[in-house]
Design a protein around this nucleic acid. Sequence first.
DNA 1: GCCATAATGTAACGTAATGAACATTACTAA
DNA 2: TTAGTAATGTTCATTACGTTACATTATGGC
Lengths: 280, 280
Amino acid sequence: MNITKAPSSTPDLVAAVSSDLTPTERLIAEAVLAEPTLLAFGTVSDLAGRVGTSRPTIVRFANKLGFDGYTKLQRHVRSEMSHLITRPSERIRHNAEKMRPAKAAISSAIETVFSALEGNRLAALSDLIVKARNVWILSGETSRAGAHAFLSKLSMVRPGVRLLEEHSMGTELGNAGPGDVAVVFDFYRYRRQVVNAAGILADAGVEVIAITDNPLSPLVELTDNWCEIEVPAIGPFDSSVPAVAIAELLVSQVARDLQEEATARIDRIEALWETSEVFL
Amino acid sequence: MNITKAPSSTPDLVAAVSSDLTPTERLIAEAVLAEPTLLAFGTVSDLAGRVGTSRPTIVRFANKLGFDGYTKLQRHVRSEMSHLITRPSERIRHNAEKMRPAKAAISSAIETVFSALEGNRLAALSDLIVKARNVWILSGETSRAGAHAFLSKLSMVRPGVRLLEEHSMGTELGNAGPGDVAVVFDFYRYRRQVVNAAGILADAGVEVIAITDNPLSPLVELTDNWCEIEVPAIGPFDSSVPAVAIAELLVSQVARDLQEEATARIDRIEALWETSEVFL
DNA sequence: GCCATAATGTAACGTAATGAACATTACTAA
DNA sequence: TTAGTAATGTTCATTACGTTACATTATGGC
């Protein structure tokens, strides 16, 4: 059960009442969230001008937030801001120490993703995917999130994309052949089943694209089209972040290359979603 | 040789003219240096009252600092203060305002992930997950990769983790109740089904943790435990990278908190994999 | 199609803001 | 001492701020 505690920060303040906000008040909320100094420094007229509404509406907004007039609201925000200013070190960087290694690790991994796609690399890989009859996706455990992202996004851009799950590998492998492309994600502690399947596909004349973490990876023997990216450890597990990142970059290039066809496809899917009221 | 550049910070400003200050003006200087918010928030009257002088003296002080009236001085101080309080991530966001290369977009988004977990935020969320009887995971489309990563990794750390898929939501929702926690990922173009399900869970007494992209998200109404992260666009699609990142950081903290239990679990699973020769 | 109600805008009022002109005090030098 | 100048205080005009009361427009139920 939620005890109704007094919210302090501006986002919390707004969030607490975000449910029953009138349209114009919602605009005000967005404005003050986007520009935190508006409330602290701005006058009622400033805010009204920015949002494109009248001054009383601003005052009513302050009332709805639980303050007796705009002045009270501003006083509160200013006092919050004072606390932030007087103690920047403690307040902002409290737990930063603990998380800094993770942050550095992720940033570095993201760097390797971009270097792996440097030059004409991204274009070359995208070209293979664009020209392929079918695209088969294989992945190990830590790369599964990347494979899923790749599947769901590439499927919106072109047809014939299939994710090979462990249980269905046997039956589906037979459908692959020359003219197809296999995108294989696998990282250290390479999965026997993934590597085997990739080998079978390569033998069957399928062009293999390997996303892996080491030039010595068994996947590299299968193809010239491979990317080496770094997989950092986040806590006890290997991170899927770089795999997802490279998957998304690949898809975005493919979408660029397919331009008309891709946009047409996306539009169709969007329309379907729209009519089936998937969104709020 | 010092080129006479415009001094920026308040102390610099005061120091630049500290040589020829009248006694009263010196008092003013001391006051504003001691309390930085005085200039930013206070009126001429406030300051005069605090220092024990008259209002014109304050105005003359502003003039001596090189400003055309107190208002101009205050405007300058406020803009300085704005720069101080805006986070680095936001600064990146504004700098790369025009067109955002994918790399900058991803970096900025990763920044927001860490900001969202600053202070005791990460610990608090982890605590909820550690103490929960069951953990239910819900997600929309662009956050699916994050949800999957969360599921697969959290499952290795503790039991009772379930991903609510769209088709099975109806039947599974009934099993949730007080003592449980729901981790909900959903971003703009919020999915009707996800929001509805989250609402049902909240009503059933389930503690909701919301990972979303806006304080005005419908998920925020349901809980005090929410994180705002940025979702950049990579090509035509929204990126799953930040969702995956925050999922992994959460799991890593949970694993830290569960220490022995978690390592025991992980060891068991590893052993299973080992004997079934999953790896090469 | 109409009425009740919520949402928003307009007008007006009292207060307090800044800055400038003017007055007074303190200090220094001849 | 006294004249002159710098420092400070007083008064006032103008502006703009926040707020309330009232009018108008949109919205939703019947």
